[in-house]
Structures are given as structure tokens and as C-alpha cells.
């Protein structure tokens, strides 16, 4: 038994599509910026790409990230709640 009622019944699909494109733009900008950051640092003799890949946050940084991640998710959920 597969239920196909849409989750976000009242969201107009265009709005959702536009929100997705906005998000994709943001994500791409971050990816671009991060790549530029690595290139700038490498030009100065600091090789970071591999270090970034393997960096393991210590307890303090992990806690900060967890807090910011939670706030980010909450903001996302809130905007979806209001958008419905």
C-alpha cells in the first residue's frame, strides 16, 4: 500500500522549484568559494585541500558545528512549516 498524497499539499510547485534553484545557487556559490579559497592558500604555499578532506574537528569545534547545524535545520523546517 503506497500512499501518494503529497506531503506539502498547498505549496505551489513553482515556488518549490524556485526555492530549490535558490538553494542550488547558494550551494554552488559556496563550492566555488571554497575551491577559490583552496587555490588562494595553495598559491601562498599552503596546501589545504587534502587537509580539509581529512580534518577531524575536535570536541569544541564539533559542538559548535552541531549547534549551527541544528539552527540551520530548524530554520529550514520553520520556513517549510510557514510555506505550507
Amino acid at each position: 500500500m503506497t500512499d501518494t498524497t503529497p506531503n506539502l499539499r498547498n505549496v505551489d510547485i513553482d515556488r518549490l522549484g524556485k526555492a530549490l534553484l535558490t538553494l542550488a545557487g547558494e550551494v554552488w556559490t559556496l563550492r566555488d568559494r571554497q575551491r577559490i579559497l583552496e587555490a588562494v592558500l595553495e598559491a601562498q604555499g599552503i596546501a589545504v585541500s587534502d587537509a580539509l578532506e581529512r580534518y577531524q574537528p575536535d570536541t569544541e569545534l564539533a559542538a559548535q558545528l552541531a549547534e549551527q547545524r541544528a539552527a540551520f535545520i530548524e530554520a529550514l523546517l520553520r520556513s517549510l512549516e510557514n510555506g505550507d
Partner: peptide, 18 residues
């Protein structure tokens, strides 16, 4: 099912879980 699926928070929850 119809009662809960009518609640926006419930559908959002389902979106997240799906």
C-alpha cells in the same frame, strides 16, 4: 490517516522522514 494528513506539520514530518 485523513485527519493527520490534513495537518501541515504532519506532512512536513513525512517529507523529512521520506
Amino acid at each position: 490517516t485523513p485527519l493527520l494528513e490534513d495537518v501541515p506539520e504532519f506532512r512536513l514530518l513525512r517529507l523529512c522522514r521520506d
